[in-house]
């Protein structure tokens, strides 16, 4: 996760309090999703950015996770995410959801 983004998120966490923030990702590369979620939950694994050794414990979700989908009116979700759901496929969505759930519970 880029150093600039780490800095921005850290500042937002200081301003609003980490417990008041929620992060929603729209990346489809599983490794990249994992890196962002880990960095924003437990700190920068590469120890190079502002979040090195800083566990913000932000709640990180993916927009395609069922937990998120359930909170969004069906019509809007289909309109915005319909194509992404088809191209991503249920298998990958399940994998990403499981991974993020585990990271959130750490």
């Amino acid at each position: 996760m880029s150093l600039e983004y780490q800095k921005s998120v850290k500042e937002l966490a200081e301003k609003y309090g980490p417990e008041n923030l929620v992060v929603v990702l729209g990346f489809l590369d599983e490794e990249l999703v994992e890196i962002y979620a880990t960095t924003l939950t437990l700190g920068d694994p590469s120890y190079s950015g502002s979040l090195a050794g800083v566990a913000l414990r932000l709640k990180v979700y993916h927009i395609l996770e069922p937990e998120v989908k359930d909170q969004i009116p069906e019509v809007v979700y289909q309109e915005q995410m319909g194509l992404a759901e088809i191209t991503t496929g249920q298998e990958k969505i399940k994998k990403i959801s499981k991974m993020l759930k585990e990271i959130r519970e750490k």
Binding site: L28, D29, E31, L32, T87
Partner: peptide, 12 residues
């Protein structure tokens, strides 16, 4: 980790 760009576009 920025994915296969043509593949993403073809999937769409």
């Amino acid at each position: 980790k920025t994915g296969d760009v043509p593949k993403k576009n073809y999937d769409m």
